[in-house]
Computed example of a mutant assay.
Amino acid sequence: MTPSDVLVEAFSRLPAIAVRAVADLSVDDLAWRPDDEANTIAWLVWHTARGQDVQIADLAASDQVWTADGWAESFALPFPSAEMGYGMSPADVAAVRVDAELLIGYLEAVTLRTRGYLDDLDGASYDDVVDEAWDPPVTAGARLVSILNDCVQHLGQASYVRGLLDRR
């Protein structure tokens, strides 16, 4: 397997994790939070997809799926289209009220875009420096691992919140 094959396999598993977290939930269930400052399942899945979308688009020097494919309009969130969730307030988190089908559709579209980027990436490109603001500078390979790690963490959190919701 090539590095791209491994990453395609890993990123391709994300939508299934999200599907299990949102299965059979209403918009109200997706917006449930265990306390007033906790993230909701809807916000966690949306933020997972947005973070992946923003960072892959940056690596690929391409448009984000969010804006290019009309997802921002479909979600109709009360934020600027550039918003991805980083540093949002509890009130902003609560404003992400959408259905499961929309959440999964967007994550699947982003996953397809990620796969296309990885399919086109040659082995030497993993060593390309993409951010010199760090010591050591961040390579494309390190950034991809970071993106994947963030996605897995947030979907794990969504799954945990789902477990709390189911037990309440």
Rank of each mutant, 00 (worst) to 15 (best):
M1C: 05
S4M: 02
V6H: 03
E9P: 07
A10I: 10
F11L: 13
P15K: 00
A16F: 04
I17R: 15
A18D: 05
A18V: 10
V19Q: 09
A21I: 13
D29S: 15
L30F: 12
L30E: 12
W32Q: 13
E37S: 06
N39K: 12
N39T: 12
A42W: 06
L44D: 02
T48D: 08
T48F: 07
V54P: 11
Q55P: 01
Q55L: 04
A57Y: 05
Q64C: 15
Q64E: 14
W66N: 04
D69N: 13
G70R: 07
W71Y: 04
S74V: 06
A76H: 12
F79R: 13
E83P: 04
M84Y: 09
G85W: 06
G87R: 02
M88L: 02
A91K: 13
A91R: 13
V93S: 15
A95D: 05
R97D: 10
V98Y: 11
D99Q: 15
A100W: 05
L102A: 14
L112M: 14
Y117C: 02
L121K: 14
D122I: 07
D122T: 12
G123L: 09
G123E: 08
S125M: 07
Y126N: 00
D127W: 05
V130W: 01
E132F: 10
A133R: 04
V138K: 15
T139L: 08
L144D: 10
V145A: 10
N149I: 09
N149C: 10
D150A: 14
Q153R: 15
H154A: 07
L155W: 00
L155Y: 01
L155A: 00
S159V: 03
Y160C: 13
G163E: 09
L164E: 12
L164A: 06
D166K: 02
